[in-house]
Design a protein around this nucleic acid. Structure first.
Lengths: 197, 197
DNA sequence: GTCTATACAAAGATAGAC
DNA sequence: GTCTATCTTTGTATAGAC
């Protein structure tokens, strides 16, 4: 049962545009005017939906987190999903960002300007990153238990490496324009997961 | 022979502060006022040294690139340096950032807000990233030739993974406050370099 | 080289009409 | 819910005295 929509259409559109702007330009560099122009309304109207830029920033992050964490929770709860299938599912949004939109992970973009952000946003980004790595550690453990994976060292280390490499690859791909960056990284990570000691 | 200093002390101090501010807050979120306050002068005086914010941004990136590329060029030119020694040297600045200053790579910070930057800066960041990965590919090849390394696949893939993972780890470490993030990633990368197929 | 003073634009935000 | 109008602050940048 999908939740009933708690926000107006306009509020959702504002969130969509703000999310895209943060992913491409960052939080400090986007303005209410940017959103107003894209949406075809006046910037004062945006304050009706989100009184302050902080409230908008927090809403964007929370919606983004909830969307991703909901999908990942379902995936890992299903014990019939193999670890490698989980890994492949995990990389899908990264590949979409890299191949189609030139966006990066929302929280990755925000982390680059971390100390310019309000603490309410900093805390959420930190929790999101931690949650992502916890999920990847569970995935890695499942793979080792099932015999799919055979990497050395603790699963948390492997999780940290996967997450770091994927986040970094998106950022680097955008700056160099090298479309193979992310696929190269994924190939090496898979090889590392399966490697015998 | 060290080059004679081409800039005044004040100009160098401005560059130092601007570099630190970009690494912590990003380019869009720092201002001439921030620098003026830290330096104890008026913000108008900064325009004498760097007429526009763009000129300052470009100067910061170029100095940063030149400093790092000069060190790396010397290291790899010495054929007596082993590949693993090169790798260890390469990670030193990352560990310093993570352990002592809470900074991230200058160009990594800038890449997060890529599309908000002037094209003159975008181009230089792209070239820096490409150069870093070229250096890491040469290092990886040296290791395979010498028998130190035994990883699968092309050296460029390995280089992309190392660079992505290190850049990502710095960003994530700052957001989560997890000091072991970077060391975990480095441990996995070393294991991957040495892994037999 | 640094200062004061100032210009100009853009930012986030609020009040009140419709 | 959206508008116009306005406020206040901050940003980059310039002119000219010292």
């Amino acid at each position: 049962m999908p939740e009933p929509q708690p926000r107006s259409n306009t509020a959702e559109e504002i969130l969509d545009i703000a999310e895209m702007l943060i992913q491409t330009r960052g939080y400090s560099a986007f303005s209410y005017q940017d959103i107003a122009t894209k949406l075809g309304i006046r910037k004062a109207s945006i304050h009706y939906h989100f009184p302050t830029k902080l409230s908008l920033g927090v809403a964007v992050v929370e919606r983004y987190m909830a969307r991703i964490e909901s999908i990942l929770a379902s995936l890992i709860a299903d014990q019939t999903n193999t670890a490698m299938y989980l890994f492949d599912c995990y990389t899908v949004p990264y590949l979409e960002f890299a191949d189609t939109t030139d966006r990066i992970c929302l929280c990755g973009a925000l982390a680059g300007e971390f100390h310019a952000l309000p603490s309410e946003m900093q805390e959420r980004i930190g929790r999101f990153f931690q949650g992502q790595q916890n999920w990847l550690a569970r995935m890695s453990k499942r793979g080792r238990n099932s015999g799919e994976f055979d990497f050395a060292g603790p699963a948390t280390r492997m999780a940290a490496t996967i997450f770091s490499a994927l986040q970094g690859a998106l950022i680097i791909k955008r700056a160099t324009g090298n479309a193979t960056e992310l696929r190269d990284v994924i190939a090496v990570l898979k090889s590392q997961l399966r490697a015998s000691r």
